[in-house]
Computed example of a mutant assay.
Amino acid sequence: MSEDRTKGQAKDVIGSAKETIGKAIGDKETERSGRADQAEGKVQKGVGKIKDALRDDDGK
């Protein structure tokens, strides 16, 4: 598994936590930041999946 997938997953989880905390304390900026982190994490995980697929194709 590529490093991008791992880092992306971490960003997604951290973003989810930030969004939840932002909602709990009524901080819209933290909420938005959490959603942005989640989106960035999802994109990075996608990049990692593509890299893994390409690497797997090269090995055949």
Rank of each mutant, 00 (worst) to 15 (best):
G26A: 05
K11W: 06
D12A: 13
K7I: 07
R5S: 09
R5A: 10
D12M: 06
I25V: 11
V13Q: 01
Q38F: 01
V43C: 04
S16F: 08
K28L: 00
K42L: 08
E19K: 14
G15V: 09
G15P: 15
E3W: 04
K18A: 12
A10V: 04
K42V: 07
I21A: 13
G41W: 03
R5C: 01
D37A: 15
T30I: 13
K7S: 07
I21N: 13
A10N: 01
E3L: 13
R35Q: 15
D4L: 14
Q38Y: 00
A17I: 15
G26R: 10
D12I: 00
K11Q: 08
R5L: 06
I21F: 12
E31S: 11
K18L: 15
G26N: 08
T6M: 07
R35E: 14
S16I: 00
Q9H: 04
G41F: 09
T6E: 10
G46Y: 09
K45V: 04
S2G: 05
R35S: 13
G15E: 11
K23F: 01
V43N: 13
T30D: 10
A24T: 07
A39V: 12
S16C: 03
S33I: 14
S2W: 02
R32H: 06
S33C: 07
Q44R: 10
E29D: 11
K45Q: 11
K42G: 01
A10Q: 06
R5I: 06
Q38I: 02
I14M: 09
D12T: 07
T20C: 02
K45L: 00
S33F: 09
D12L: 09
A39Q: 15
T30G: 08
A39Y: 06
I25L: 04
D12W: 01
G34P: 13
E40A: 15
A17Y: 09
T6N: 07
K7E: 10
G34I: 10
E29W: 00
T20P: 00
Q44P: 00
K18I: 07
A36Y: 06
T30W: 03
G46H: 08
E3P: 00
S16L: 05
G15Q: 11
